[in-house]
Lab assay of single mutants.
Amino acid sequence: NKASVVANQLIPINTALTLIMMKAEVVTPMGIPAEEIPKLVGMQVNRAVPLGTTLMPDMVKNYE
């Protein structure tokens, strides 16, 4: 099973992601793959992301 990106803390709306906000975890359903973490740094979330939430592509602005 591949790990996904999971919020390590509450991430407020429009916050630019940093490494300490994210962790890799095997979850179902899968979200953004953990190997994308370096690419996510500096990208903004378009909603508040609660602690423990799996990051999905539609939660990150301009994620492709």
Results as ranks from 00 to 15, higher is better:
residue 1 N to V: 09
residue 2 K to I: 15
residue 2 K to A: 09
residue 2 K to W: 05
residue 4 S to C: 02
residue 4 S to I: 02
residue 5 V to G: 04
residue 5 V to L: 03
residue 5 V to H: 00
residue 5 V to Q: 00
residue 5 V to M: 03
residue 6 V to P: 00
residue 6 V to R: 14
residue 6 V to W: 02
residue 6 V to I: 12
residue 7 A to I: 05
residue 7 A to H: 01
residue 7 A to N: 02
residue 8 N to Q: 15
residue 8 N to L: 13
residue 9 Q to I: 11
residue 9 Q to D: 15
residue 9 Q to K: 11
residue 9 Q to F: 11
residue 10 L to M: 13
residue 10 L to R: 11
residue 10 L to Y: 14
residue 10 L to Q: 14
residue 11 I to N: 00
residue 13 I to H: 14
residue 14 N to C: 03
residue 15 T to D: 05
residue 15 T to Y: 09
residue 16 A to W: 05
residue 17 L to H: 00
residue 17 L to C: 02
residue 17 L to I: 14
residue 18 T to F: 14
residue 18 T to A: 10
residue 18 T to G: 04
residue 18 T to C: 03
residue 18 T to W: 03
residue 19 L to K: 04
residue 20 I to M: 11
residue 21 M to V: 09
residue 22 M to H: 00
residue 22 M to I: 10
residue 22 M to N: 00
residue 23 K to Q: 15
residue 24 A to S: 07
residue 24 A to V: 08
residue 25 E to A: 09
residue 25 E to M: 11
residue 26 V to I: 05
residue 26 V to N: 04
residue 27 V to D: 03
residue 27 V to E: 05
residue 27 V to H: 15
residue 28 T to G: 10
residue 28 T to R: 06
residue 29 P to A: 04
residue 29 P to W: 03
residue 29 P to F: 15
residue 29 P to K: 14
residue 29 P to Q: 09
residue 29 P to M: 09
residue 30 M to E: 11
residue 31 G to L: 01
residue 31 G to V: 04
residue 31 G to Q: 07
residue 31 G to W: 02
residue 32 I to F: 04
residue 33 P to N: 09
residue 33 P to V: 11
residue 33 P to I: 11
residue 34 A to G: 09
residue 34 A to Y: 14
residue 35 E to I: 08
residue 35 E to H: 14
residue 35 E to P: 04
residue 35 E to T: 10
residue 36 E to M: 04
residue 36 E to H: 03
residue 37 I to T: 08
residue 39 K to N: 09
residue 39 K to I: 08
residue 39 K to T: 05
residue 40 L to D: 00
residue 41 V to G: 03
residue 41 V to Q: 15
residue 42 G to A: 10
residue 42 G to I: 01
residue 42 G to C: 02
residue 43 M to V: 10
residue 43 M to K: 14
residue 45 V to N: 07
residue 46 N to L: 14
residue 47 R to A: 13
residue 48 A to L: 12
residue 48 A to I: 08
residue 49 V to E: 01
residue 50 P to W: 10
residue 50 P to R: 12
residue 50 P to D: 15
residue 50 P to I: 08
residue 51 L to W: 11
residue 51 L to R: 15
residue 51 L to N: 09
residue 52 G to V: 01
residue 53 T to N: 08
residue 53 T to P: 00
residue 53 T to F: 06
residue 54 T to V: 13
residue 54 T to N: 08
residue 55 L to M: 13
residue 55 L to W: 01
residue 56 M to H: 15
residue 56 M to W: 06
residue 57 P to S: 13
residue 58 D to S: 15
residue 59 M to V: 14
residue 59 M to W: 12
residue 59 M to I: 12
residue 59 M to C: 02
residue 59 M to H: 05
residue 60 V to E: 00
residue 60 V to W: 03
residue 60 V to A: 01
residue 61 K to H: 12
residue 61 K to Y: 11
residue 62 N to H: 06
residue 62 N to D: 14
residue 62 N to P: 05
residue 62 N to T: 05
